[in-house]
Design a protein around this nucleic acid. Structure first.
Lengths: 160, 160
DNA sequence: GAAATATGCCGAATATTATTCAGAACTAGT
DNA sequence: ACTAGTTCTGAATAATATTCGGCATATTTC
């Protein structure tokens, strides 16, 4: 994983719909070379699937909430893990702090959120929940590749 | 936005790297028709960019934290909004509940988190922060298109 | 240090896919 | 029924992905 790989990841994170020719140009490589690098990144697990990002509002999911869940036990309760099958649930983390589990949930409206919370309370491990409903989202983006060094690859290659 | 559009969104959310021929086949349309639909979804804002999802661990970001930020004022403080320029910050929401702002932050290690929190406290609006460090992530996925009705389009077309 | 092996890259060739286009079929309004 | 608008299809074309042989450079092995 060198600077070229990191730049490729950054480019792909920004826009995965560009051609390998353009991708290669960005790092000073030919299209087949860029293709090969990306293939290896994919094989190595650094690059997961290429996915489209949809506008949740367009599919009616206008309400975003973060739900803190306090549980009696610790670790992955089967009932809690079953929540992963629900399309409303986007993230499940176990966290440090004054709560055990943290969920990111996207639903159509407050009624749907109530229904979801009711289902949550029905799980025997769950002792309490606290919901943080998002009023407005100022930023939401995928993990960044984060290139530390400046790129001078293209110049290097031209100098050869 | 009919069932076909929703299915297309769901397919693209699952894997955007498939051809329009396959995409069209999934909804019972020809490749150009599927292409046209997707173009319209994109134009209408339902479909944002197509992006690659990277493994944060592969680029050294092993620590995920949710940070609650209490502020003296309300609304988007310019200093707080400046956090959006930092690559560590993935999400910024204003929320209801016992805090004002909720950040999703991904950093390399606990030292980097400390540095980030120090920068956060330096902002004059910030009165307190509470961090929830993710111990393990059980689920993390993009917003789902969520198709309600079952698909019988392909059969319909064959019956013609 | 030299031979052998592996890796990374290139240009050219080929395979696959995206995109355009003209016309047919369906819809909705008058 | 006529018209205008939309959506679709198959064929044609443009663009792109992918494969391949060969070369240069690094890395290992003796």
């Amino acid at each position: 994983m060198d600077t070229i790989d990191r730049t490729l990841l950054a480019e792909l994170t920004r826009d995965a719909a560009q051609s390998y020719a353009r991708l290669g140009e960005a790092v000073g490589l030919s299209a087949p070379a860029a293709h090969d690098r990306v293939r290896k990144l994919r094989k190595g697990g650094a690059l997961h699937a290429v996915e489209a990002r949809i506008n949740p509002h367009a599919v009616g999911k206008t309400l975003l909430a973060f739900v803190h869940v306090d549980t009696s036990g610790w670790g992955k309760s089967p009932a809690l893990m079953a929540l992963a099958d629900l399309p409303e649930v986007e993230e499940i983390h176990s966290v440090t702090g004054d709560t055990c589990m943290l969920l990111k949930v996207r639903v159509t409206d407050s009624e749907a959120l109530e229904g979801f919370l009711a289902r949550l309370y029905a799980i025997e491990d769950v002792t309490a929940t606290r919901s943080y409903v998002a009023l407005s989202t100022y930023l939401e983006r995928p993990p960044q590749a984060g290139i530390t060094a400046d790129l001078t690859i293209r110049q290097d290659r031209a100098a050869r």
